[in-house]
Simulated assay, not measured.
Amino acid sequence: MEPTTTSSSIDTVATTTDTTTIDANISDETISDEAKSLHELAITGSWKTILEKVSTARSLSLLRYPHEHLVYLAFNAVALSKLRRYSEALDDIESSLEDLNSSCYRYESYPHVYPNKCGSMIPFSLRWLHALLPSFLNRRSESVDRLYLLLNFVRSRIDEGFNREVWIRRESFVVSTIISQHSSQKEFVVCFDLINEMLRKDVDNLILLSKLGYVQLQFGDLDGAKSSFQRVEDVAKKNGDEGLSVEVLNLMGRNKALIFMVAKDYVSAIRQYDECIERDESDVVSINNKALCLMYLRDLSDSIKVLENSLERVPTVALNETLVVNLCSMYELAYVNHTDIKKTLSNWIARLAPDDFDPSCTRI
C-alpha cells in the first residue's frame, strides 16, 4: 500500500500519476449543443450509455457535419478507454483518422459549412488519447514518442498566440502525462528536468513546485523536497495568510504531512491530514494517507474506520480504487472472515459506482 501524493487528476498527477485514469473532462471549443448530453453523461461516469448513443448516431447517420463525427469519435474513445477497452479505443481512432495534421480536419477546408472559421476541428482529447493509449498496449516507447510530438504541437499553438491561456493549460497537462510515463519507469531525473523546464516559465506555480518536491523525495533528496515545499508556502503566503483557498491550504498540508511520513513521524502526519479533512471532507488523498499512517502505527481498527467513514460520508468522491484496494488489504490483515466483508463492500460498490470502476480491486 502506497501513500497517495496528490489529489489532482490527470484529471487527473502525482509522484507517480495513475496513468490508468482517463480524464473525463473532454470539453473542447469544438463541442457544441449536439454533444452536451454526452458531456453530461461523461461527468456522471455513464460510459456504457455514451457508447450506445454514439453507436445509434452512427448507425442512423445522424452526424451531418465533419466536426460532429470527430466529437462523437472523441466521446466514444474516452468511453472505451474508461472501460479499459484500450485496443478498441485506439483502433477506432486510428481507423477513423488519417494524419492528424491533414487539411481534411481543418474548418477552412469546408468554407460552405464553416464560413469564416479556421483551424483544426480535432478535439484535443483525441490527440491526447492517440498519444497515450499505446502505453496500455505494451507499446510504451511509441506512446512516449507520440506524447513528445503532441507537446511540440501544443507549444506551436502557444507560439502562434491562438487561445493562449487554453493551450498553456494543455501544455501543463501533456507534460504531466509525460512525467507520469517516465515516473512509472523510475526515470526521475527526466521528471526533474521536465518540471524545472516548466517552472522556468511559471516560477510561482504551486502545483509544479509540489511535484518537484515529490520527485525529489523519490530519489532521496529530502532537503531538496523540503526546500520545494517551503517555496510553495512562501509563494502562497506572499500576500498574507488571508484569502488562501482550501485547495491551496490542503496542498501545503499534504506536503508537510508527506515529509512527516518519510521521517516516520506518523502522529504529526495524521495531525496534518486531519486539518485537511476538516477543511474538505472529500480530500481523498488525505483520507487515504491518514488511514495508512494509522496502519503504520498498528492501529488497524481506526485505519479501517477512517476509510469506511469516508465511503459513507462522500461515496461518490471516496469511491476511489486506490482507497478501496487499501481498505480490502486492511480487511485481510484484520479479519478472518475478510472474504464475506469484502463481498458486502463489493455489493455496495456495485450499486453506486460509475461504469468505469474496476470491481476486481476488492480482490474477491
Rank of each mutant, 00 (worst) to 15 (best):
E275P: 07
A350K: 13
L126V: 03
A57T: 03
W47Q: 13
H338E: 06
R231G: 08
L133N: 01
Q181N: 11
P111L: 00
D202T: 12
I364T: 14
P3E: 07
I207Q: 09
L258R: 06
V215W: 02
G119P: 01
T322G: 10
L208S: 07
F124V: 02
K117V: 10
R106E: 05
R64N: 15
V154A: 06
L90Y: 05
V113E: 03
F75K: 07
S227I: 11
N309Q: 10
S183A: 11
D340P: 07
K290L: 05
S346P: 10
T12D: 12
L199R: 00
S141D: 04
D234E: 14
S120A: 08
E98L: 09
D356Y: 10
L194G: 00
S184E: 09
K48T: 12
A263E: 15
I43C: 12
S286L: 04
E40R: 15
G119L: 04
M261L: 13
L217K: 02
S109R: 01
N320V: 00
L63V: 02
G213A: 03
L251S: 04
L151V: 03
Y114Q: 00
S183V: 05
E187M: 11
A236P: 01
G213E: 01
E52D: 12
F357H: 02
R271Y: 11
S183T: 04
S310F: 05
L209R: 11
N152Y: 11
H112C: 13
E275S: 12
F357E: 00
S301Q: 15
R146L: 14
A334F: 07
G45I: 12
E160F: 09
R231T: 01
N196I: 01
S310E: 03
E308V: 09
Y273C: 10
I26Q: 01
V284D: 03
N309S: 11
I93S: 01
N25C: 11
V246K: 10
